[in-house]
């Protein structure tokens, strides 16, 4: 809605690209690993923000699409012997179709009912894959080391995964930004604020809602494909881990729900904090406790998150940080 004075999108894309190049240029694998994770979390958080922040539907079990994308891509690579990149792209398609099929009925539910339904769907998917021999059942699937030779070895494959995750993260942010500034995004936000009013002013809610849900599913599916390609192993408990889903919600809220920049800031801050807590021997044991405390303080006192708070505090920022 706002006329931008500094182009936010090019700035953030440039920033991420430079950041992504850093560990490659300085040949710093541990930093690369760290950034890989951050980009993955940025993707998850920004995607959830589209359905939760813009549209107002708390998708609690959103990680289901991460797991589905991971499984479909892994199947194509492991069983069909496909290359990673086409596997990733093709795996996103059934994930999107499933999102549309799920979204159609459950997006009619409101509030708590929707949130619970998404938990149910994630758990159902987990136990289905647990029992489905085609995908390796409870043990899951794992690569032979030889799989990575076609990419030039494990290290090169790992780098390929890193570049891919960077691209996926940047794509997610770009789409998130474009939606926020579009007429489609305005419809989503009107639905979020008051679906009945949205209908009265002429918005037919079902289509934009399903579209938002599908878009918010595609990027996690790609992130899942990339993560498990790099991981070399996929199993149901790890693919459909509810806790990771909830962690992504936490990042969105920490950073600022409904803003483009919030999920990016939230994901980075959360991961930084976790790293700090884990490596600090005195605090390592209280890692979860402190994370919980931080979340509670945010929810109780800074409900608009870091970015939201800054925008309220310094209104001039609103023109720069969407």
């Amino acid at each position: 809605m706002k006329r931008m004075r500094v182009p936010f999108l090019p700035a953030i894309v440039a920033l991420l690209a430079v950041l992504a190049a850093f560990p490659i240029l300085t040949n710093n694998p541990s930093m690369r690993e760290e950034l890989f994770l951050v980009f993955m979390l940025v993707t998850l958080a920004s995607s959830i923000n589209i359905i939760m922040g813009y549209t107002g539907y708390v998708s609690f079990g959103h990680i289901v699409f991460f797991g589905l994308g991971g499984y479909f891509a892994f199947y194509l690579m492991q069983i069909q012997g496909w290359h990673f990149i086409p596997s990733l792209i093709v795996a996103a398609i059934p994930s999107a179709v499933i999102a549309a099929l799920i979204g159609f009925p459950i997006l009619r539910l409101r509030g708590a009912y929707f949130a619970l339904a998404t938990v149910g769907i994630n758990e159902a998917m987990r136990v289905v894959f647990n029992n489905w021999d085609l995908f390796g059942g409870a043990v899951g699937m794992f690569f032979n080391f030889s799989v990575y030779t076609q990419y030039g070895g494990a290290k090169a494959a790992s780098e390929l995964a890193y570049y891919t995750m960077t691209v996926v993260a940047i794509a997610t942010i770009t789409v998130s930004y474009l939606i926020k500034r579009s007429k489609f995004g305005l419809a989503l936000m009107a639905i979020r604020e008051d679906q009945d009013v949205a209908m009265i002013v002429g918005i037919r809610p079902s289509r934009p809602k399903i579209a938002a849900y599908v878009i918010s599913a595609v990027f996690p599916a790609m992130a899942g494909a990339t993560f498990f390609f790099k991981n070399g192993i996929i199993e149901p408990g790890h693919a459909f881990e509810l806790l990771r889903s909830i962690e992504s919600l936490v990042m969105v809220v920490l950073g600022g729900i409904g803003t483009v920049a919030g999920p990016i800031v939230g994901a980075a801050a959360y991961e930084w904090l976790r790293g700090f807590l884990i490596t600090n021997p005195a605090l390592a044991n209280f890692q979860l406790f402190l994370a919980g405390l931080l979340l509670l303080v945010t929810v109780l006192f800074v409900s608009s998150g870091l970015v939201g708070w800054l925008r309220e505090r310094f209104p001039v920022l609103r023109g720069y940080v969407p």
Binding site: M1, K183, L186, A187, V201, G202, I203
Partner: peptide, 11 residues
Amino acid sequence: IANVTVGAAFG
């Protein structure tokens, strides 16, 4: 302004 834009954009 966004509130009113909603009225104009979808009616």
